[in-house]
């Protein structure tokens, strides 16, 4: 039996489905453990890589992304949802990437006008 079939939460009648006989929740408390562990690692990451800003930012970004993905997949049940809802959420993600990419030239060309005024 596939993981989805065994771990998928019951899709209730309010979702337009007949409830399944067996109810298997995803491992919510294990995911809590992973999220807590990742948060702890994030806190110590700057201590481990104090002189490597790229490693620091990359590591923190990957961990934040992993945590966000875990919440979306398991707590928001996106892993078990229809692909239509995946597309609904894919749009803002794609648009966000385009927008941030569009902002980057501004960021490179931007200079903090406040800083030179300070003594």
């Amino acid at each position: 039996m596939s993981e989805q079939a065994t771990n998928a939460p019951v899709v209730s009648a309010s979702d337009g489905h007949a409830p399944e006989q067996e109810h298997h929740d995803p491992p919510y408390y294990k995911i809590l453990g992973v999220l807590t562990a990742l948060t702890a690692v994030e806190l110590f990451w700057p201590v481990w890589f104090p002189q490597a800003p790229i490693m620091l930012i990359l590591g923190l970004s990957v961990m934040a992304g992993a945590k966000a993905l875990l919440v979306a997949m398991y707590y928001m049940h996106l892993k078990f949802e229809s692909k239509v809802l995946w597309f609904v959420m894919a749009f803002p993600v794609i648009l966000a990437i385009i927008m941030v990419a569009g902002f980057l030239p501004d960021a490179v060309g931007y200079h903090d006008v406040l800083r030179p005024q300070l003594p």
Binding site: M89, A96, V100, A107, Y110
Partner: peptide
């Protein structure tokens, strides 16, 4: 999805300011 785009606008602006700051 629309709310996420609102947050992304703020985060994008924050990134421009932060990356551009010495």
């Amino acid at each position: 999805a629309s709310d996420a785009m609102g947050f992304m606008g703020l985060i994008g602006g924050y990134m421009v300011l932060r990356i551009g700051s010495d």
